[in-house]
Write a protein that binds this DNA or RNA. Structure first.
Length: 665
RNA sequence: GCCGACGUAGCUCAACGGUAGAGCACAGCUUUCGUAAAGCUGAGGUUGUGGGUUCGAUUCCCACCGUCGGCCCCA
């Protein structure tokens, strides 16, 4: 018998009896044996106790510095939690799945149980204590392999119905020959592994929350109890992680929106119907105003349409009844069919297209509108500004010929990138949403869908975007390019979207007269670079932690007289700023200057002008930046010129930066 | 919609069977002050809504509404 083990560094070793990765690691060095977590044998993750009998193999010993190790650690943590839950709640507990989470911002693992009783967060402490007991016992995790028949028999015997179903699925999907289990003392769980060698290796973990989760994510199935937790190699990393979550929560747009007076939600108006306060409205108007200008440059024509339309319009479009569950109920109109609050702007824009005969000479036609739409989101889905029931889309519909299509899509992609770049939102991913081939929720022919999907792929390839393709993410009328961004706690939100649509033009029988004097069918692009100002600003609040760049800041300059003696001078300077289009606010409260500075700073006002007797005498203003501190006194004209530059360049030329550069020299 | 938690002054929180309190914010007065919190006084609450248990409910129970964390779905 001979085994040859090849290591990643090119080194190799030979053994003439069966070895385990742990033995091999210890053979390399005692220290490596001690710190080994798991191993990768011929590219497959395995336990340290995996028997290697014969042949040539490649082997990587995984230590805590390999990312795969954390996954093993967390996966074992999930098992230890399951063991604890079994100990506490008895043999009636049904186990389902309990994976490690490596990409989630908050959570490190979960396990879904079917429990005889319901659980609350108060129970987590108890479960943690039991986990600690199991860890202290340093129970080894032993892998055993059974044939599918044996596995089913065993799981049936102990009443684990979900595991039986999982075995059946494994047989159908992968036609496996063996099913692996891990014994952990008297606790057995079906699992692919690998795991830590014993429970004592888990040093730092925390159970975070308990939530409901449908079996297999299907709402027709039973709701299981999911416990989320996380685990790290040491307590310091865990503490840092929990601290990071706490810090991130302070950026939460719902909290900042309240603190900074940007928006509010009123129970009496209705859930998911945000109300924009004056300061939030400024941000919206600035953002929308800028975008309107960019649209004008790009040949868009603004249009305006009402918030409701006849039910029949949405039958034609296909929104009704496909999307009925997502709509507010129909407004009844006696004999008439009734009206719907519009869930999308496209049918209205299509009617504008149809309001006259169109020639190929007009194409592409680009109708834009900040159109407010209404969708009846499930109550549990509502979330601050990021998921609401009444929201605006920075919408436009481009009607074009096949020859123009890809150029137009490209231009939409570039506009979306401009928006994200200008605001410094660099941390996003691009998703191409395709049909789910098994679903019937889409409208239109397969040929049209194939064409549209090809158009989209061509464009992203030419533009050079990194992207992932995901089936089932398409709109019901066509595939799309989505720009997806995370919120402060790592939840993904779709912002900008570009959708190619061959189907609605068909459903509405749209035409233009071609150069051949014959009617042709245009293709539509639906696109929204922000997606929705509501959601976009929600994300933006978190991105800037409420400290907006000067051009968006609700108050750009706080004018702070040192005492009431300088009130007249301060009033005059405020007047001058306002006359120059600067959003200035005078703080004429009887507070001391320190208190005024503190207030303006907490309100995240970018600039403060401190005005005392000195400034009044010299006819200057003392400039203070929110984060950079005192800049010294300058003439008001110079100050206005500087911040105007900063406003016009959307912060890319910042007064603070220039002053700091000067100081560096 | 489903599972779980939560809902007390404008905001952040306390009191948890004996009839509600603090800080900030707000109002009045005093102070006129130089780069992140001056002092005093005052006002502010049918404790989300509606039922129930109880001599008595903010506290215990039920229903509804809303919020939060998840699941599903989506801009």
């Amino acid at each position: 018998m001979s085994i040859t083990i090849q290591f990643p560094d090119g080194d190799s070793r030979q053994y003439d009896s069966a070895m385990t990765p742990l033995q091999i690691a210890s053979d390399i060095s005692e220290g490596l044996g001690r710190v080994a977590i798991a191993a990768e044998l011929d590219g497959e993750p395995v336990d340290l106790s995996r028997q290697i009998d014969t042949g040539d193999h490649t082997l990587r010993i995984l230590t805590r510095h390999d990312p795969e190790s954390l996954k093993v650690l967390r996966h074992t943590a999930a098992h230890i939690m399951a063991n604890a839950v079994r100990n506490l709640y008895g043999d009636k507990v049904q186990y389902t799945v309990g994976p490690a989470l490596m990409d989630d911002f908050q959570y490190g693992f979960y396990y879904d149980f079917d429990l005889p009783e319901s659980l609350s967060t108060d129970d987590l402490g108890k479960i943690e204590s039991e986990m600690k007991r199991i860890i202290k016992a340093r129970t080894p995790l032993e892998r055993i392999e059974l044939t599918p028949a044996e596995a089913k028999e065993r799981m049936t015997a102990i009443g684990q119905e979900y595991k039986v179903r999982m075995i059946d699925d494994l047989l159908t999907a992968e036609n496996v020959e063996t099913i692996s289990f891990y014994n952990q003392g008297d606790f057995v769980d079906m699992c692919r592994g690998p795991h830590l060698p014993d429970t004592g290796k888990l040093k730092a973990f925390k159970l975070q929350t308990v939530a409901g989760a449908y079996w297999r994510g299907d709402e027709n199935n039973k709701m299981l109890t999911r416990i989320y937790g996380t685990a790290f190699f040491d307590k310091k990393e865990l503490a840092e992680h929990l601290e990071r979550i706490e810090e991130a929560r302070k950026r939460d747009h719902r909290i900042l929106g309240k603190q900074l007076g940007l928006f509010t939600l009123s129970d009496e108006v209705g859930p998911g119907l945000p109300l924009w306060l004056p300061k939030g409205t400024i941000i919206r108007m600035e953002l929308e105003g800028w975008l309107r200008g960019e649209l004008l440059k790009r040949g868009y024509q603004a249009v305006m349409t009402p918030h409701i339309g006849r039910l029949d319009l949405y039958r034609t479009s296909g929104h009704y009844p496909y999307y009925e569950h997502g709509l507010f109920p129909t407004l009844p109109m006696g004999e008439d069919d009734g009206y719907l609050l519009k869930p999308m702007n496209c049918p209205h824009h299509i009617q504008i297209y149809k309001s006259s005969q169109r020639s190929y000479r007009e194409l592409p036609i680009r109708f834009s509108e900040f159109g407010t739409v209404y969708r009846f989101e499930k109550s549990g889905d509502l979330n601050g500004l990021t998921r609401v029931r009444g929201f605006t889309q920075d919408d436009a519909h481009i009607f074009c010929s096949p020859q123009q299509l890809e150029v137009e899509i490209t231009s939409c992609v570039e506009l979306t990138k401009l928006v994200l770049d200008t605001l410094g939102l660099n941390d996003y991913r691009v998703r191409i949403g395709l049909r789910d081939p098994d679903s019937s929720k889409y409208t239109g022919s397969s040929e049209n869908w194939n064409l549209a999907e090809q158009n989209i792929r061509n464009v992203v390839r030419d533009v050079g975007l990194d992207y992932t393709e995901e089936s089932g993410e398409a709109a019901f009328y066509g595939p799309k390019i989505d720009f997806v961004i995370n919120d402060c706690i790592g939840r993904e939100w779709q912002l900008g979207t570009i959708q190619v649509d061959y189907n609605l033009p068909e459903r509405f029988a749209l035409e233009y007269i071609g150069s051949d004097n014959a009617p042709h069918r245009p293709i539509m692009i639906h696109r929204a670079p922000l997606g929705s100002p509501e959601r976009f600003i929600g994300i933006l609040i978190e991105h800037f932690a409420g400290a907006f760049p000067l051009w968006l800041a609700p108050v750009q300059v706080a004018v702070l007289p040192v005492s009431e003696k300088c009130a007249d001078y301060a009033t005059e300077q405020t007047r001058i700023l306002k006359d120059n289009g600067i959003r200035a606010e005078l703080d004429d409260s009887p507070e001391k200057i320190g208190a005024k500075i503190r207030r303006a700073t907490l309100d995240k006002v970018p600039y403060m002008l401190i005005l005392g007797q000195k400034e009044a005498d010299a006819g200057t203003v003392a400039v203070r930046h929110r984060t950079e501190g005192d800049f010294g006194a300058v003439g008001i004209d110079g100050f206005i010129a500087d911040i105007r530059t900063e406003i016009e360049t959307k912060g890319s030329q910042c007064v603070a930066d220039r002053v700091l550069e000067t100081e560096d020299r």
